[in-house]
Design a protein around this nucleic acid. Structure first.
Lengths: 208, 208, 208, 208
DNA sequence: TATGAATGAGCATTCATTCAT
DNA sequence: CATGAATGAATGCTCATTCAT
C-alpha cells in the first residue's frame, strides 16, 4: 500500500530507528534464516514495537533488501589490500580469488541467506543473477583481452569461461564455508587459482 | 509417530494409490515449489482424500523423498548411450559432461526443487551433499590415476580438483537450465569440457 | 446404523474374534485411557483388521461397555472368601470393606477408567450411578434394620448414611490405589471400618 | 514457546481483553465441558479474533488455569457468615460442612469441570490433590488436637480420618449438586455432620 | 466373516499486517 | 513517530467410520 521506503526524508531519530531495524534484521536473518524468522523477533531485537517496523518497511522482504544494500559495498567492492601492485595475470587472479574467498568467509551467514532466499523469491534471485552477470562481464572482457594478447586458450568462449570459473569458485566457497566441508583456506585459494589459470591455459612465461 | 512409509506389505490397490500420490507430488512440487505447495494440492491432483496421504507418508518431506527415490535411478545411472566405447580421457570427460548436462536438462524442475529444499531442510541438504561426495570420490580417484600416469598436472589436489570442476559444471547447468541464462547446449558441453581438460592440463597427444 | 451387537448368533469363530477384541480393548484402555486410545490400537492388539471391529461393535463406547460387562460379575459380586460365617455387624462391615478395597485394588486401571469416562459420557455415568444406587439400597436397608434393632444411631437417615459411607470408602480407594497416596492396605481397612462403625454408633456389645 | 501469560505489563485495554477471554472461557467450559469446547467458541463468546487468544494464553489448558485462579479466592476462602462465634467442636464442624457444601453448590459447574479435567490432565489432577492435601493437613491436625483433649476416639489415625471424612462430604456434594441425586440441602448438612461427629466419637457433652 | 484402503470433517496454532491510541 | 493490541486467513494432521473386495 504505502510506499514506506519512499518516505525518505527522515528525521535523525527516524534514521536511527530504521538503522536499528536493519541491524536487527541482519542478526535475526543470519541466526534463523529468512523463512524461519518472525517480524516480532526483529522488532524485539531492535527494541521497537512491531508497528514501528511498518513505518520504514513494507514487508519482510523489504528489510532483507535493506540488509543487502547495507553490505553491498563491502561485498561487491571487496578489493585486495594492495590493489595497485601489478603481479601479472596469474598473481591478479590469485589475488582476486583470495579476496573473494575471504569476503565470502567473512560474510558466510549472509551468503547462505542469499542462497536461501534466491530459491524462493524472484527479487533476490535477480540480485544474485546481477552479481553473476557483473562477474561474467568483467572477467569475460579480461579474458578476451588476454586471448587477444595470445596469453589464453583461443578456443574458449571468454564469457562462458568467465561464468563457469566464477561458479567454480563461488560454489567451492559455499561448500567450504557454509557447509563446512573442511578445505583449508590456503589450499583452497591455491587450488582454485591453479584450476582457473590452467583452464585458461594462461601462461606468464615468455618461453615458446 | 508411526512411520507410514515403512515396511508395509501393500496390496495392489495400495501400491497404485501410493504411486498416484508420488506422481501427483512430483507434479505439484515441480509446478509450485516445495514451500508453496499444500498437501491438499497433492491429494487433489492424485484424486484421493487428504487422509489417504497419511496412509502412505508421514509428512510433506516424506513424499518428497519418495519423489527423489523414484527418479534416483534415472539421475544417478544416467549413462552415455554408447558406454563401452573407449574414447580416451578427453572423450570420456566430454561424454560424462554431456550425459550429466542432458540428465540435468531433462530433470530441471526436480533439480531446482532439490536446490530449494536443500537450503531449508537438513535432510535434503544431506542428499545433495552425498551426491557431491560421490562425484568427488569417483572423479578424484580417476584424476589421481591420471596423475600417476603423468597425464595430469601433478600440482593439483585431485579431490579438490574433482569437487571444484563438478561444481563448475553443475552450477552452469543450474544457470542454463533453471535460470535459463541462454547458453546453447553444445556450446555448453564443449565449453565446460575444454575448461575441465585444460584445468587438468590433460593431454591425450603422444608428442612431448 | 446397524445394530452390530444385536447380531448375536455368532459362530464359534465369530465369538472368538469378538472376545479377542474385548480383551484387546481392555488392555489398550487400561494402558492409554479411553480418550487417548485409538481404534487401530485395539485391532492391532487383537490382531484383526480395523474393519472387523465394526462387525461386532458400533463404536468405541460399545466395546468399552463390553469390557465393563466382562468384569461386572467379578466387581459387583465381589464377596468375602468365607461368606457364610457370621461375624456380627462390625465383622461383616469390615469384611465387606476389605473385600471392596481388595477388588478395587485388583482392578485399579479399570476403576480409573470408569472414573474418566463417567465425566465425559452419560452412558457410563449411568453405569456408575447404578452402582452407587445398588450400594445405597443394599446398605441402606441393612442400616435401617440395625436401627430397628436399636443397634444404630436412630437419628441418621439410613440411606444417606449408606451412600455417604460408600463414597467415603470408594474415594479412599481411588486416592490410595489410583493416585497412590500411600495408605497401607490394612491401615486403610481398619481406618474406614472404624469410621464407618463409629458413624453408625454401631455397638456389638450387649451392655447398656 | 513463548509463555504469553507470563510477565507482561498489559495495557488497560489488554487487561480488559484478557478478562473477557477468561470470563468467556468460564462460560464455555461450564456449558460444554473442557473436552468438547473449541477455542473458537471461547473467542466468539469473548467477541475477539482467534488470534487474540494467543496474545494472552498458550493453550486451552492455560486459560482454564486462569479460570480456576479467578475463582480460587472465593472457593478457598469460603467462610461461614459468622466466623468468629465459638460454637464448640460440633457447631464448628457443621458450619464448615455447610459452608463447603454451599460453596460447592454455588460453583457446581466448575467443580464438575475440575472433576473432568483431573481425570485427563496431570496439571489439574495436581490442583485437585493439593486441595485434598490441604484439607487433610488442616483437619487432621484439628482432629489430633481433639484426641489430645480426649474428645475424639483415640483409635483413629487422625489424618486418615480427616481425609476419609473430607472425601465423604465432597463426594456427597458431587452426587447431590452435579448429578442432582436429590438430597435436600439441610438434610445433607445435618446428615454428613452427624456422620462426621459420630465417626470421631466426638462428644461435647460433659456427661459420663 | 475378514480385510485394510479410503474418507473427510474437525481444530489448534501461527504470524504478517493493520490500526486505534 | 511510536506503541502493541487486534486481526483472521491459512493449513497440516488425526482418526472414527465406511465400504469395496
Amino acid at each position: 500500500m504505502s510506499d514506506a521506503a519512499a518516505a525518505r526524508p527522515l528525521t535523525g531519530r527516524g534514521r536511527r530507528t530504521r538503522q536499528r531495524l536493519v541491524d536487527a534484521a541482519r542478526v535475526v536473518f543470519e541466526r534463523d534464516g529468512f523463512l524461519n524468522s518472525r517480524l516480532v523477533d526483529i522488532t524485539d531485537e531492535a527494541g521497537t514495537a512491531v508497528g514501528s517496523f511498518y513505518t520504514y518497511f513494507d514487508s519482510k522482504e523489504a528489510v532483507l533488501e535493506a540488509v543487502f544494500d547495507d553490505v553491498r559495498e563491502e561485498m561487491v567492492h571487496a578489493r585486495p589490500a594492495r590493489p595497485a601492485v601489478d603481479r601479472g595475470p596469474i598473481g591478479t587472479i590469485e589475488a582476486a580469488n583470495r579476496s573473494y574467498l575471504d569476503t565470502y568467509r567473512r560474510n558466510v551467514r549472509l551468503m547462505a541467506l542469499l542462497e536461501q532466499v534466491s530459491t524462493t523469491s524472484d527479487r533476490f534471485l535477480q540480485l544474485k543473477r546481477s552479481r553473476v552477470r557483473a562477474f561474467r562481464e568483467r572477467n569475460g572482457r579480461a579474458i578476451a583481452d588476454l586471448q587477444a594478447d595470445g596469453l589464453v586458450d583461443p578456443d574458449l568462449d571468454p564469457y562462458l569461461a568467465a561464468e563457469a570459473l566464477s561458479h567454480m569458485v563461488s560454489r567451492m566457497a559455499y561448500e567450504t564455508f557454509v557447509l563446512e566441508s573442511g578445505w583449508d583456506f590456503e589450499t583452497l585459494v591455491a587450488g582454485v587459482t591453479r584450476l582457473w589459470t590452467n583452464a585458461l591455459q594462461l601462461t606468464d612465461r615468455v618461453e615458446c
